[in-house]
Simulated assay, not measured.
Amino acid sequence: MNAAIPNSSYKCQAKSVSGFTLIELMVTIAVLAIIVSIAAPNVSTQLANQRVKATAATLENALKEAKAESVIRRQNIEVIHDSTANTITLENVSDKVLSTYNINIESTVTITPNTATSVTFQPNKATFNGAQVVYTVCDSNTKATPRQVEVSAIANVSNKLGGTCS
């Protein structure tokens, strides 16, 4: 007995495969790696600038709070910067702590004049003995732009770009 094979021709049907080849994936990863290596230094500088900006804003807020509290309480309020603990403390005349602000550990604050360790606000909206103090805020990343928080003799507090870091 002979088995007959029908005349229908068998066609090889190739399945269409969707996806990416290994080479396409490797090229894409290489391009992404190059882009990330270019962007990484800019990101770290931006983060350092944000730390400096945040520290300067914290310092400015502490000084403005001290000025307002001296008027409200009708007594001198002293703003003390502790560089070892990275804090800013507001104290009244009886050394009672009113507020404490924490500073980012990667930020450094220097005070000009060097003899000043604190600034005292009086109820008459002036600083004690007409002291003029400049706080310079820097970051551990030397590419960050420093900022200065200035306190004038009439207790005006301003925050601006400037200063030098060593």
Rank of each mutant, 00 (worst) to 15 (best):
D95K: 09
A33W: 03
T55S: 12
A56Q: 07
A57K: 12
L47N: 11
T136I: 05
V17A: 09
G163M: 03
R74G: 06
L98E: 01
L32H: 01
E69G: 08
A66Q: 02
A48N: 03
V97F: 04
V52I: 08
E60A: 15
N102M: 12
N129A: 14
V157C: 02
E24D: 02
N92C: 05
N141T: 05
N102Q: 12
V36I: 14
A30P: 01
T87Q: 09
G162H: 07
T28Y: 01
A116P: 01
S18A: 07
E60Y: 13
A40M: 12
P146D: 08
F121K: 09
I38Y: 05
K64A: 01
V97P: 08
L47Y: 14
A30N: 08
S16Q: 15
V133Y: 04
V71D: 02
S140H: 05
T84N: 15
V97G: 03
A131K: 09
I80L: 10
V157N: 00
N124C: 02
T55I: 08
A57P: 00
T120H: 01
K96S: 06
A4P: 14
V133R: 03
A57N: 07
N76E: 11
S158C: 00
N7D: 14
T110W: 06
R74C: 03
L161A: 10
C165P: 12
A54Q: 08
E69N: 14
T45H: 02
K64W: 11
A116L: 00
A153Y: 06
V79W: 07
R51T: 13
A3W: 12
T89N: 04
T112P: 02
N156G: 04
N92H: 04
T89V: 11
E69Y: 09
F128Q: 13
I77H: 04
S9L: 15
E69W: 08
E65P: 07
A68F: 11
I105V: 10
T127I: 10
N124H: 05
V151E: 03
L59E: 04
N76L: 12
D95A: 15
A131P: 00
I111A: 03
K143F: 08
I88D: 04
S37R: 06
T21I: 14
Q50W: 08
K96F: 08
R73P: 01
T28F: 00
A54P: 00
S94V: 14
T58K: 11
I88G: 05
K125S: 10
T112F: 13
A33F: 02
F121A: 10
T110C: 01
S166G: 13
D82H: 04
L32T: 10
I154K: 06
V79D: 00
T100V: 11
A54Y: 08
I77Q: 07
I72T: 15
T120E: 07
S152C: 05
E78T: 15
S107Q: 04
V157T: 03
V71C: 05
I88F: 02
A33I: 06
V157W: 13
S158A: 11
K160D: 13
V134L: 12
T115E: 11
S18W: 04
V97T: 15
A68N: 12
T164P: 00
